[in-house]
Design a protein around this nucleic acid. Structure first.
Lengths: 344, 344
DNA sequence: ATCTGCTATGTTACCGCTAACAGCCATTTG
DNA sequence: CAAATGGCTGTTAGCGGTAACATAGCAGAT
C-alpha cells in the first residue's frame, strides 16, 4: 500500500502527503510524528518510513496555531560582542535543551527603541516565555510585557522592580563591595574608568554603589574617564594613560569591565608601573580571558552561567516546590582579588 | 462608536477585538496594521488608536500560516563564544534591518548531530532563507537543505561544493599564503598550534594549505600541538611553552586562531624572547582584541563582516542584476603582517 | 450471547489571520 | 443621464496542523 514518490513537482510537503503515502489518516501521522497517543508499532513504522522517504518536515507554524503552543523562548540582550551574553546563552541553552524549548535571540544594541520593537516582534510569535536583560524598559515595553500572558524573566540585575520574575545580582552592592575592599587595602586616590553608555544601567549602578561606599569613608572619586566604541583592550590602555598623566597621584583604577581593565593592566606592565604597589586595578565580570594575562586582574564574577540557567528554569517551569512566578532571585557575585590589589 | 475596554478578563487579544473596538471589519484592521491596501485616513487612525489602547500584538503564527510568508531567516553557527560569529551576525543584522526580515540564531557546538536537529527545527518554521557556517554537513542535513525550497547560503568557507550559494574565503589558500609569507621572511623551523576539534573543518583546511605550501619549499612542520577547552589565551601560553621546551630550535609558531596566538605572544614577551627575531608568530582571524596587545600579532582578516552582509543580501534578494541562486562569492582575506614576522 | 472496557484509528471543528474577490458609493466620463 | 472608474470596506475560503470527540474492533467478564 505504498504509493510511489513523485519527486519532480516540488510542492512543499504536508501531512496529507505522508498520510497518502502511508495509507493512514493525517491524524495518525500527526500522532506518530509527535509521539503522542497510542499508535500500533506497525503503523508507526510505516508512517516513519514514509515521512523519511519523502523528506517531510512538519510545519510548526500550523502546529503552533492549532495547538496554541509554541516551543520558543525569546531572549533579548543588548549585545552579542560582549563576552558576557554568550555565557548567559550557554546557561539558557543547557537548561532548555531537554525541555523541547528553543531559545530565539534578539539584540537591542542598548537602544530602548530597538528593545521595544524586538519585544513586539518576539511577542508576535507568542513564545512560551521571554528572558530579557535589565529592569529598565520604556513604558510601552513595560505595558507589552505586562500584557503578554507568559512568564517574563528579567536578568542580570535585581536593583529595581521586575515585571514578573528576576534573576541577577545587585550591581549597586557589587560596586559597594569593591569599594570597601579597595579602601580596606589602603588605596585612597581612586579613579573610575568606564563606558560612555547612557543605557548601560548596570554599569551606572555599580558606579553609584561604588561612590556611595567611598562616600561613607569620606572619599570622593579622584578622577573619571569614559569612552565609547572601538577595541575595549586598546581603549583601556588609552584611558589608563590619560588618567595617569592627568592625575599622577591616583593610586587605584576601577574599570567598568574586564576588557578595559585588561588593557589598563597591560599598559601598566608595559610602563613598568608597580602593580599593585604603585596603583591597584580592578575590573568587573570575571571573563575567561583574564586567566591568560601576565597578572590576574581583580574582578567580580557576575554569575552569568547561573543567571542563564535559573532564568531558563523559571521559564521551563522547573523551579522547585511549585513556585509559579514573580520570583526574585539574587545571586552573590564573588570577589576575586587576583594580583592587582595590595594584600592587607 | 468606541466600545469600552474590559481589562479584567485577560484572554489574548485577536483582530476581532480590535475590529469590535474600532467598529470596522477584521480585514480592515489587518490592512491598517500591515500598511497594505487603501484605507481612509480616518479609519486608519481609529483602528490604530484602538489597537494601541488595547495593547494588541498581532499573531504572526496565524499571519504566516495564512500568507505563506515568514519573515525569519535562520542563522546556524557552531558557537557564540568565538568572537568571530558575533561579527558575522552584525553584518547579517545590518543588511536585514531594513528588509523586514529577522535573523534567528541556532548554535551547533560543532556537533553534526546538533546541526542536523537545528536545521530540522529551523526548517519546520519555514523561514525565508537559511545561512549556515561551513560546507560540511551530514547526509541527512544535505538532503533537508536541498529539499527546503528556500535560499540557502553556506558561509565562511568556499573550498567545497555548496548546496546552493556560498560566501567565504578559501581557508586552504589562506594557509598557503601565510606559509609563503613566513618562508619568504626566512623562517624554516615552523610549528603549528591549534584546536583539537575534529569538526573544525576550516582550521583543518588552513593547516592543509599551510603544509602544502611548506612542502613546495621542501619543508615539513617542525612540531605541532593541539588543545581543547579552557581559556584560549591561557592555552596559548601553555602550548607555546610546551612547544618551545620540546623543540627549542623552532623559529616560527603558526596558531589556528588569534586568541591562542595572543596567549603565545604574551608568553614570549614575559619570557623575554625576541619576537620576531628569535621566533615569529602568526594567528588567524583579525580580531579586534589584538589592537590592544603590546605588539601586533600577524594575522589574516577573515572578512567576517562582509561575509555576513553578502549572505544576508543573497537571502534578501538584494544581489545585483537579478542573480538568483547558486552564487559562490570568494572574498580575499588580507594578510596583516603586524610586528611578529621579521621584515624581509 | 451480551456487555464492558480497552486500543487503535478516523472525523470534525476550529486556531487567527490573509488572499482573492465582491460590493458599495461618490465621481468622472461620453 | 447611464456607464465606467476608482477608492474604500466587507465576505468567503482556506493556510496545515491539532484537540476533542466519535467509532470500530476485539478480548475478557458476566
Amino acid at each position: 500500500m505504498v504509493k510511489p514518490v513523485t519527486p519532480d513537482i516540488r510542492r512543499t510537503l504536508t501531512l496529507r502527503d505522508v498520510s497518502e503515502a502511508s495509507g493512514v489518516s493525517e491524524m495518525t501521522v500527526s500522532r506518530v510524528l509527535r509521539n503522542r497517543g497510542d499508535v500500533s508499532e506497525t503503523t508507526r513504522e510505516r508512517v516513519l518510513e514514509a515521512a523519511r522517504r519523502l523528506g517531510y518536515v512538519p510545519n510548526k507554524i500550523a502546529g503552533a496555531l492549532a495547538s496554541q503552543r509554541v516551543n520558543l523562548v525569546g531572549v533579548i540582550i543588548p549585545s552579542l560582542s560582549n563576552m558576557v551574553f554568550p555565557e548567559v546563552m550557554t546557561g539558557i541553552s543547557d537548561v532548555l535543551e531537554d525541555t523541547g524549548l528553543q531559545p530565539v535571540v534578539g539584540v537591542t544594541n542598548y537602544l530602548p527603541e530597538r528593545e521595544e520593537s524586538v519585544i513586539y516582534e518576539m511577542l508576535s510569535w507568542r513564545p512560551s516565555g521571554l528572558i530579557l536583560a535589565g529592569l529598565e524598559h520604556s513604558a510601552a515595553s513595560q505595558a507589552m510585557l505586562a500584557q503578554a500572558g507568559v512568564p517574563i524573566v528579567e536578568i542580570m540585575d535585581i536593583d529595581g522592580t521586575p515585571v514578573d520574575s528576576a534573576v541577577g545580582i545587585s550591581h549597586r552592592r557589587a560596586g559597594r563591595q569593591m569599594a570597601e575592599t579597595i579602601v580596606a587595602a589602603g588605596y585612597r586616590r581612586i579613579a573610575f574608568l568606564g563606558t560612555q553608555m547612557p543605557n548601560d544601567h548596570r554599569a551606572k549602578k555599580r558606579l553609584a554603589g561604588f561612590e556611595e561606599a567611598l562616600g561613607r569613608e569620606g572619599l570622593l572619586l579622584a578622577d573619571r574617564e569614559f569612552y565609547s566604541g572601538g577595541s575595549a583592550l586598546l581603549k583601556g590602555r588609552e584611558m589608563t594613560e590619560a588618567v595617569l598623566k592627568r592625575s599622577p597621584d591616583v593610586d587605584f583604577l576601577y574599570y567598568s569591565n574586564d576588557m578595559i581593565g585588561a588593557g589598563g593592566l597591560l599598559y601598566c606592565l608595559d610602563q613598568g608601573i608597580d602593580v599593585p604597589g604603585r596603583v591597584g586595578l580592578a575590573g568587573f565580570n570575571g571573563v575567561e580571558l583574564l586567566d591568560g594575562l601576565p597578572r590576574r586582574l581583580a574582578t567580580m564574577d557576575a554569575c552569568r552561567l547561573d543567571i542563564g540557567r535559573l532564568a531558563a528554569e523559571i521559564i521551563a517551569g522547573k523551579r522547585p516546590d511549585g513556585i509559579v512566578g514573580g520570583e526574585i532571585i539574587e545571586l552573590s557575585p564573588t570577589l576575586q582579588p587576583g594580583d592587582t590589589i595590595r594584600k592587607v
